[in-house]
Simulated scan of single mutants.
Amino acid sequence: MMKPRVFVTRCIPERGLKKILDLCDAEIWEEELPPPREVLLQKVRDCEGLLSLLTDKVDAELMDHAPKLKVISNYAVGYDNIDVDAATARGIAVGNTPGVLTETTADFAWALLMSAARRVVEGMDYVRAGRWKTWGPMLLLGQDVYGATLGLLGLGRIGSAVARRARGFAMRVIYYDPYRRQDLERELNIEYVDLDTLFQQSDYISIHTPLTPETYRLVNRERFKQMKCTAILVNTARGPIVDTMALYEALRDGEIAYAALAVTDPEPLPADHPLLSLTNVVICPHIASASVETRSRMAEIAADNLIAGLKGEPLPAPVNPQVVPGRRQAV
């Protein structure tokens, strides 16, 4: 029996890739950069399955280029790169990799928060530049974390994991989310507040909301003007939730003290972007989930979603569970 043909848009860890290669006629895009649009459209033409990344735009046009496509497995918890409504209308199952990266991403949010609070990257640059001559009472003074107020913009899996870690620092934790979680308020001793209060009272704001039309550039000039001049912004969610130029201006003008980012808009930032000229910002590649174990588990879940869809079985982690895999619909 012929193996189903699939396209995998980047090399993924072996634990997931082996499952796919064992059961599928798989073509793997092995370049560092994602496949160009015209290449992606050509590669999926005869495929029954697609394993995509956040960098791949999977829209109605692509789906119509792939009349045999049964399943789209996204190697990410987010899926704003996929037109889920278009997939559902065509009977194409969509899967993601939720849950597995929660703790790893929460760890990284804390790594960013601490590095910004205590100016770790500036300290490394100071040493490497040969400027460290002696101990100085005013050298690279940062902000305390213990006992400070942490504001969480979003209280899903990752936001609540960050809140749990804050207990070890005796922080006051406040949050805003469209869906109030009184169960977590009791469990974690956190407070629900409105957006204005969150921005006005927080010493640290950590973003953990999905990118939606409502959250696009939610953190903008008006919000920066509400923040304390000593406040620090952390973003491990999605870059476009923050207005990048407004952030640059707020950091440049001292409206806020610092930012620490694992995601940006655009992503990646051009080397000549003005944000990179500032010393009061930490910017990393999109690596909040980048531990060996987490990325391997993501690969396994993505592979299991792909294989289940090819077999016409329910996906282990479905985005559109109402779709019965394998029953492609004409649009």
Rank of each mutant, 00 (worst) to 15 (best):
N81Y: 10
L50C: 08
A317S: 14
D125Y: 12
T244D: 00
A60E: 15
I190F: 12
Q226D: 06
R223N: 10
V323Y: 00
I307R: 03
A288N: 11
L54R: 05
I82V: 15
A290Q: 10
L278D: 05
S52W: 02
H273R: 01
D243C: 13
K3I: 02
P285Q: 15
R118Q: 06
L188W: 13
K19A: 13
P210E: 10
L112Y: 02
V281I: 15
V77G: 07
D56P: 12
G156I: 09
L152I: 13
R37T: 11
I283E: 01
R297M: 11
C11E: 13
N189Q: 14
A303P: 07
V6A: 11
A129G: 14
Q201M: 10
R172G: 01
R327G: 00
P318T: 06
Y176P: 13
V281F: 12
T294I: 11
L247H: 07
L211A: 09
W110F: 15
K57H: 12
L101F: 06
G130T: 04
Y126M: 08
P35K: 11
L247W: 06
T264F: 10
I283S: 09
A262K: 05
L275T: 14
R328Y: 09
A260N: 02
A257I: 01
T105S: 15
E32V: 09
D203P: 07
P321E: 00
L53W: 04
V193N: 11
P98Q: 12
A262E: 09
P240V: 08
E103V: 12
A129E: 14
A161F: 07
L251S: 03
I241Y: 08
E313Y: 04
A290H: 14
A257N: 14
V219Y: 08
G326C: 04
T104G: 01
N81P: 15
D304C: 06
D107V: 01
K18F: 03
A308P: 02
L54K: 02
I174Q: 11
A262R: 06
A116I: 00
V94T: 11
L155Q: 01
A161H: 08
D22R: 14
T212P: 00
L247K: 08
K133G: 10
P316R: 08
L218R: 06
R165W: 03
Q200P: 06
Q329A: 10
V324K: 13
S296E: 09
P178L: 08
P316E: 03
Y79C: 04
M63I: 11
Y192N: 03
Q42E: 15
G136N: 14
L276H: 01
G147P: 01
R45S: 12
K70M: 07
M245F: 11
D56K: 05
M171P: 00
A303C: 04
A116Q: 08
R10G: 11
V39D: 02
D83R: 07
G78S: 09
L150V: 04
V282P: 04
P321R: 08
